[in-house]
Simulated scan of single mutants.
Amino acid sequence: MSKVIETTVYQFDELSDAAKEKARDWYREGSFGYDWYDSVYEDFRRVAEILGLHLKTRTVRLYGGGTRQEPCLWFRGFWSQGDGACFETFYSFRKEAPRRIRNYAPQDTELHRITDALQSVQRRNFYQLHAEASHRGHYYHEYCMAISVERDSPTRQDMTAGAEEVMIEALRDLARWLYRQLEREYDYLTSDEAVDEAITANEYTFTEAGRRFG
């Protein structure tokens, strides 16, 4: 014999503090199946273009059967010692990069420092340095990038002393910078403030104990 069971449901702001915390846990566990990092990737693509990085791309299959080209950017985080970000790219000198990066990100002193390091080592080598970074291994952090540096000199001059190391470290610093942007975005999206706003905007309802209803 069928029965009708009535359940009282609550909006988020009607819950107790303990029930709100349970509701937040529910949201955090199941609400990051989308590409939440897209805005960070888009910002990085703009930074890369300013600095003279030409990111490599890979073919990604779509659910509908088609394909599209995605930049070779990867990360894993944010809880283990081996977590990080990396990318695949070709790099060459880009004129006015320091001025342009300061216009684009005026408060980001770390990005300014990386740009200045690239500019300085290029100046010492008559702006003839080129680099290539490729991913290697099964992890995703700055040391998973195999980076080669060459000088395209018409007179076959060698690189100045230490130039290769400076270039490699600058590109690895850029991968570290990308990881910090991803971590910052994730921390914001999972903060109580952002989660509360998302739950309220979607008008989710819960039981008195904070379990999602419906």
Rank of each mutant, 00 (worst) to 15 (best):
E49H: 05
G84W: 02
P154V: 10
Y140C: 05
I147T: 06
G52V: 04
E49N: 09
S191P: 02
Q181A: 06
H130N: 12
R99M: 10
E49A: 11
T155I: 14
A48W: 04
T8Q: 14
I50A: 00
E203L: 11
C72R: 05
E165V: 08
T207M: 09
A19G: 04
Y37M: 01
R180D: 14
V9T: 13
D13H: 10
Y34R: 09
F75M: 05
T115S: 14
Y91R: 04
T205V: 15
R61A: 14
K22H: 04
R211A: 08
R94K: 15
H130E: 14
A194D: 10
E70C: 07
Y204I: 06
L15C: 10
G214V: 09
D196Q: 09
L189V: 06
D158E: 14
R136Y: 12
H54I: 06
R100C: 02
V47I: 15
Y140D: 04
W36G: 02
R124Y: 10
G64A: 11
T155M: 13
K56E: 13
G52D: 02
R180H: 14
R76L: 08
R46G: 07
A198Q: 07
D187S: 09
E197M: 08
N125V: 04
A48S: 15
I5H: 12
S191W: 04
F87H: 02
Y188N: 06
D158F: 09
E165F: 04
A18F: 07
E6I: 12
A48M: 08
G214T: 08
R113C: 11
S153T: 08
E110G: 11
A198C: 10
L62G: 06
T7W: 09
D35W: 05
H141C: 09
R136A: 14
